[in-house]
Design a protein around this nucleic acid. Structure first.
Lengths: 220, 220
DNA sequence: CTATTTGAACTGACCAGTCAGTTCAGTTAG
DNA sequence: CTAACTGAACTGACTGGTCAGTTCAAATAG
């Protein structure tokens, strides 16, 4: 009965060095490390096979943790996924916002953002898959989460487009919202296609294709 | 071992209902009608809740048919979905190909195609959801199906882009493949966003936003 | 007569969520 | 210094339920 293995908790807890801990209350090292590993494991699995196609047991096993731990750290599978989405968007937002104000040229700034989005998709290949497979389900389990996160992402893109519109003469007959959606869609689909079907395509090439939208928006 | 051999619909499924013209093998009306209803029911349900989130019993009930009938007409749930994807793409392809040669102006032709894609998404709102939620899964249950269908759709878009490139001066530094993916992605995401989050957006507005890509491709 | 459909029973696998028990890094008490 | 204690973190067997796929005898349509 008591043959429970030492489990190699190992205390090799990465020190969360410098990682900007959120506004959360200070939590024990172990828990954060565990959550982190659960995020990584579930991102990978869910990105590949979809939220419904992955079991909590698999996630736990991949994270080197027991099933109970998943339910200790998250209330439910659904909760885990909601937090996973939030986690990924937070990372992406941080990267995009770091670009703002790096350059004075709005178009160059935009290019850098699209490029950064591609870099993000290289680093977290599964996030975009999770995003596109669960978004647009109505009414979906995470509708409210998506509505919120989508607004946050579009706000950043929207601000960048706004700066372009302020600095250049643009085609005012194009609706801003639809344009943002088009950019967003092009980024995700071009990125996913590169990952899945055309890994030989270079990042610059993909960025250039997406930026074609902005070149069409600006009146030359 | 099944007692009654399920009808191997094979690759050529007569998708258009109503015309009794020359089906090679004699197939009673009933079968086609049943298949049609199963397609409609499963498109609806799977589009909303995902392939894994819908049960065969539900599909059968929604189609007003028994579970046994599903397995008589299709060998498995997986098979049903594969044929469903093929069915949807066939419809979309037919609509897009009907545009080709309608106009002499390649850009106008392109606009009409994008518009037609939006009309298609209005009529079959669930198809795009199914497409984006199951595509890009590697290795997925329907990888080979997607590879094939994707190539067929991209061929049509590619031909349209080719005609633009032949009729106008275009930015040759843009890779054709990435550009096609960007167009494809913009269409799907703009369309889905309209359905799901912004139903007030007009179709023209959405088409115009997508066409911004082409305006950026053409050198003015 | 044959192809198709029905409906219900059945199997075997799979799975989300629970809970009583275990571990262990501290903390306090002697 | 060390023994007792604490409680957060973790464990994994177990439960109650679901579902894909099978089978088949009987009904129905062409």
């Amino acid at each position: 009965m008591s043959t429970t293995e030492p489990v190699a908790t190992d205390s090799t807890s990465d020190s969360t060095a410098g990682s900007a801990s959120g506004s959360k209350k200070l939590r024990p090292e172990r828990t954060n490390a565990t959550k982190q590993r659960l995020f990584e494991a579930s991102m990978e699995l869910i990105g590949e096979r979809g939220a419904a196609g992955v079991t909590v047991d698999e996630i736990a096993a991949a994270a080197g943790v027991s099933k109970g731990t998943v339910y200790y750290n998250f209330g439910s599978k659904s909760d885990l996924i909601a937090q996973l989405l939030r986690h990924g968007v937070d990372i992406m937002l941080a990267r995009l916002q770091a670009i703002e104000g790096q350059t004075n040229d709005p178009l160059e700034s935009m290019t850098n953002m699209v490029d950064q989005a591609m870099v993000f998709m290289d680093k977290y290949p599964s996030f975009a898959r999770l995003w596109v497979s669960e978004n647009w389900r109505m009414p979906g389990e995470w509708s409210s989460v998506f509505t919120e996160l989508r607004a946050e992402l579009l706000a950043v893109i929207g601000a960048a487009v706004e700066r372009v519109a302020a600095g250049y003469q643009v085609d005012t007959s194009i609706a801003r919202g639809s344009l943002e959606a088009a950019i967003f869609g092009a980024i995700f689909v071009v990125g996913l296609d590169r990952q899945t079907y055309n890994p030989e395509r270079s990042r610059e090439q993909c960025v250039a294709a997406v930026m074609t939208i902005m070149h069409g928006y600006v009146i030359k």
